[in-house]
């Protein structure tokens, strides 16, 4: 047992994946607490983490419900945010095993973390191992964290007293931060924010956040102009 642990730990791609999963567990706890604060049942929160299993989309759906938004808005924003997993699937599908069952099982683990660690590897075998170790580790700790979070939320009491109902936007900012390093994504974020801001007094509630996706096209247009000029 000890030898196997040591062997596992000596391979950096497995070690990194495992450690990342452990860190994501704390996200899971906050997801459980906030889902509870949004008035979502414990069972629903746990089912979301098991079957939706993509953090930003889950936070978005729960955040919209928390803000009193329509179910369609919750679904729309979550699906807009989940679309990138489709792109990940296209790239990581190449290294997944051939069997259909394993591919479909592995598909659920296609998320930011597993794809990031996997794409850092130099050969396909390491990439595949990194994908499974990271994906499974994130899956296990994200779900354990959710359970701990909803139980913790039950103890906390009225979320408004603690301001927990207002913690979502800061959480979205933390999720947005890594995107701000690239100039194009920064512009997309900026235009998305401006569109949402302008849309609030004009469009019916629930649509401004969907409209923010228009920022994508302005950012793309601006970047193509820049490239043409240089």
């Amino acid at each position: 047992m000890f030898n196997r642990v040591q062997a596992f730990w000596s391979q950096s791609h497995k070690r990194d994946g495992f450690a990342l999963g452990l860190a994501v567990g704390t996200f899971g706890i906050t997801f459980g607490v906030l889902a509870n604060a949004a008035g979502i049942s414990d069972l629903m929160a746990v089912v979301l983490s098991l079957f939706v299993f993509t953090g930003a989309s889950q936070f978005a759906a729960v955040g919209v419900v928390n803000a009193g938004g329509e179910p369609l808005t919750a679904l729309g924003t979550a699906l807009l945010l989940g679309a990138r997993n489709g792109v990940y699937g296209l790239s990581v599908g190449r290294i997944l095993p051939v069997g259909k069952f394993k591919r479909l099982l592995g598909a659920q683990l296609v998320i930011d973390e597993s794809v990031a660690v996997s794409s850092l590897q130099l050969d396909d075998r390491d990439a595949r191992e990194a994908f499974w170790v990271t994906g499974l580790s994130v899956f296990i700790f994200w779900n354990l964290g959710t359970v701990v979070g909803v139980l913790l939320g039950d103890v906390v009491g009225d979320p408004r007293t603690w301001g927990l109902d207002a913690a979502f936007p800061a959480g979205f900012f933390a999720l947005l931060m890594p995107h701000l390093r690239s100039q194009e994504k920064r512009q997309s974020a900026l235009w998305g924010a401006l569109i949402a801001l302008a849309a609030i007094p004009i469009l019916p509630s629930g649509l401004p956040v969907i409209a923010s996706v228009g920022g994508v096209f302005i950012a793309a247009f601006a970047s193509s102009l820049r490239r043409r000029r240089s």
């Binding site: 930003a56 945010l81 996706v213």
Partner: peptide, 28 residues
Amino acid sequence: RERLLNYVAPAVLSGLIITQTFENEGQL
């Protein structure tokens, strides 16, 4: 196409930040 899809998450995340912070019953 891939680049466009990569721009979606930042746009929608900042849309969420704005609407959940500065919207109250359809008003700023």
